[in-house]
């Protein structure tokens, strides 16, 4: 409980520092939001209009006043209005986010379903044809860029076989190809990681003594060895889920899938600051929350990592 409290405090502190830095960076960067807004309305821009909009946005105030105003409204989930669509930024992000989360979750599930059995089997049958084909699969998956995997899957399942929709969103079927595409790339990394950590776990010196006490091979493998093998895997899980959410951009573009990734790319090109800022802080919060739960998970599975490897 104490650990959770401490983690929560450092989480809030991190979020505050991060949001402040992102506020400063975005506001001090060159470019004029006022002209962005006026250009979006597609009219000839006069100096007087510019001044009015600047006044309205509070851009004539000092940076400190802008900051406190921003922070205050930010905490109330008033993240400003998009300069481009004039919609609340919060709503825009919340509308796009579920799609991205679905794809990420689907990709993660795909990766787990592929990597756990293949990685474990490769370690348990080291040097066999299973191990060799797992390595081939891992190297292929890691070296082929995800958009190419996506295009191949579209060609195969959507164009040739016609089983699945190629682009767009709406049904669960639409999720399948993007998730597979993203998941295959991720799986290749995890196949190698699970294989090597499983091999390492098999060397754990206590296992022979445990086996001498009559614990069955099945139990030894899946309760003891697998647990030890999971420790390195879980250690990197948080980082890899975070990068997964960031990595959906390319996939969203390939599959024309309207998620948060494509929203943020559009917003950056149009200098739509409220959306960028909201999304940045939200992602920072999400990433550190994922990391936090990751730490707790690790603590649960390996309460103290006193795994000094000694031989009898």
């Amino acid at each position: 409980m104490k650990i959770i409290g401490r983690q929560a405090v450092s989480f809030l502190l991190f979020l505050w520092i991060f949001s402040t830095i992102s506020f400063l960076l975005i506001n001090l960067a060159p470019g004029d939001p006022a002209s962005t807004i006026l250009r979006a309305e597609d009219v000839a821009v006069t100096q007087q209009q510019l001044n009015e909009v600047r006044q309205e946005l509070g851009m004539n105030d000092s940076i400190f006043e802008q900051y406190t105003a921003w922070l205050g409204s930010f905490l109330l989930f008033d993240w400003g209005t998009s300069y481009v669509t004039q919609e609340p930024a919060f709503m825009m992000i919340m509308r796009a986010l579920p799609a991205t989360i679905y794809i990420s979750a689907g990709a993660f599930l795909t990766a787990a379903v592929i990597a756990v059995p293949i990685g474990s089997a490769a370690a348990l049958h080291r040097g066999s044809w299973i191990d060799k084909s797992a390595r081939l699969l891992a190297v292929t998956g890691a070296s082929v860029p995800s958009f190419l995997i996506g295009l191949v899957l579209i060609q195969l399942f959507a164009v040739q076989l016609g089983w699945l929709p190629a682009i767009g969103a709406g049904t669960w079927w639409h999720l399948l190809l993007p998730s597979l595409t993203l998941g295959i790339g991720m799986a290749s990394f995890y196949i190698r990681l699970i294989r090597s950590s499983f091999l390492e776990a098999l060397e754990e010196p206590s296992l022979r003594a445990v086996s001498a006490r009559g614990i069955s091979e099945q139990k030894l493998r899946w309760k003891y060895t697998f647990r030890a093998a999971l420790v390195p895997v879980i250690s990197v899980l948080g980082v890899s889920i975070s990068s997964l959410i960031g990595g959906t951009v390319v996939i969203e573009v390939v599959f024309g899938y309207p998620g948060a990734g494509s929203l943020i790319v559009d917003s950056i090109t149009r200098r739509d600051i409220p959306v960028i800022q909201g999304y940045t802080v939200l992602m920072a919060a999400a990433v550190s929350l994922i990391q936090l739960s990751n730490d707790l998970l690790l603590r649960w599975i390996a309460p103290n990592r006193g795994t000094e490897g000694r031989v009898f």
């Binding site: 206590s206 009559g214 614990i215 139990k219 030890a228 420790v231 000694r310 009898f312």
Partner: peptide, 30 residues
Amino acid sequence: IVSRHIAYVFQDARSSFFPLLSIYKQWEDI
């Protein structure tokens, strides 16, 4: 035969217990 009739006690006893499970869980399995 070994597990039912013989008990090993090693010089370094720590390496005869699995580090990631509590003593209770390991004994329960035994």
